[in-house]
């Protein structure tokens, strides 16, 4: 019985094969299916292409925004320089008059009028502070004043530390040197680079009023990872594969709040008390480093510490 049933099925199938047009329909169906598969693949490819284009567009937009921000920053700095030169003369003259008037009054006032002498001292300090701000603005608004000579960067670091040693000692800061030997000499303006390190060490001391550790490192490295201003783009300062001398100044102090990290190099930005900081220290640092066609970066975690990394050019570009 089973045998006869199978036979019947086979014969039915066999009979379908022989239906005129069935083979043609199957072929057509196969083609439709293949077209459907191809279409799906094409859509998938198009979606992938679209994703890549979107990603590239996003990267370009990000880069454009960065370049725009850099341009705005550069223009801002140039404007500060122009303004500084313009106002310097006008501000320094009245400051000179104030200081000399204070000198006159200091001699005229009887020594027993201690309160009045204290007032004069405060006036004098304020006038000098105003002068310091104008001088700082003036000094770093002129890139042409760079007096670069070949220098041993470790020697520059050590002489700079010497100038802030008392403050570091007073704040119970332990200095840990990790300076590499036989580093290539750098073509830098020694006075200005000393100013950079003095400002960084001073800031570190201020960040550790109850003590801490100050790590000072120097080493030679090959730049391998693309970062801001490091890469093979037109406006990058360092090319990938280029050798650079790195100086790191790292403290274990109170750190910088995330919101403030992108403002710390702006002129007049300070988190210090009014009479303690002019808000120009790190602006000066960045201006000097940029004058040397080098880079400075900062990493910080609030409550854990701050690390400044200076990437120095060692190629002949500094000689141009």
């Amino acid at each position: 019985m089973v045998k006869s049933l199978k036979k019947t099925k086979t014969s039915r199938r066999g009979s379908r094969k022989n239906i005129p047009g069935c083979k043609k329909t199957r072929k057509k169906l196969g083609r439709v299916l293949q077209d459907k598969i191809n279409l799906r693949q094409a859509i998938k490819n198009a979606v992938e292409d679209n994703r890549k284009i979107k990603e590239e567009l996003g990267n370009s937009l990000k880069r454009l925004k960065e370049v725009q921000a850099q341009l705005i920053h550069a223009e801002k700095m140039e404007a500060v320089g122009r303004m500084a030169s313009g106002v310097a003369h006008e501000v320094k003259n009245p400051l000179g008059i104030i200081l000399q008037c204070i000198n006159y009054l200091e001699e005229e006032l009887p020594p027993e009028q201690k309160d009045n002498h204290q007032m004069l001292e405060m006036m004098k300090n304020s006038a000098k502070r105003a002068d310091k701000i104008v001088r700082t603005l003036l000094s770093f608004s002129r890139a042409e004043e760079l007096k670069a000579q070949e220098q041993d960067i470790n020697a520059v670091i050590e002489s700079s530390i010497g100038m802030v040693q008392d403050k570091l000692k007073f704040n119970s800061v332990e200095i840990i040197y990790q300076l590499a030997e036989s580093l290539p000499k750098l073509l830098v303006d020694r006075d200005k680079i000393e100013q950079v390190f003095i400002n960084l060490f001073n800031n570190a001391a201020d960040a550790m009023p109850k003590g801490g550790k100050l790590y000072v490192r120097s080493y030679l490295t090959e730049l391998k990872t693309p970062k801001d201003k490091i890469g093979n783009r037109g406006n990058d300062i360092f090319k990938l594969g280029e050798n650079a001398v790195i100086v790191e100044v790292e403290d274990t102090g109170e750190g910088i709040k995330e919101d403030n990290l992108n403002k710390i190099f702006d002129p007049f930005f300070t988190t210090k008390k009014r009479m303690e900081g002019t808000g120009l220290g790190l602006w000066v640092v960045k201006s000097i480093i940029e004058m040397h066609k080098s880079l400075i970066n900062v990493e910080s975690k609030s409550g854990q510490g701050t690390k400044f990394t200076v990437i120095f050019k060692i190629s002949d570009e500094m000689r141009s």
Partner: peptide, 8 residues
């Protein structure tokens, strides 16, 4: 001598 300067 740069301005401002003190008398001394």
């Amino acid at each position: 001598l740069a301005k401002p300067m003190e008398k001394d």
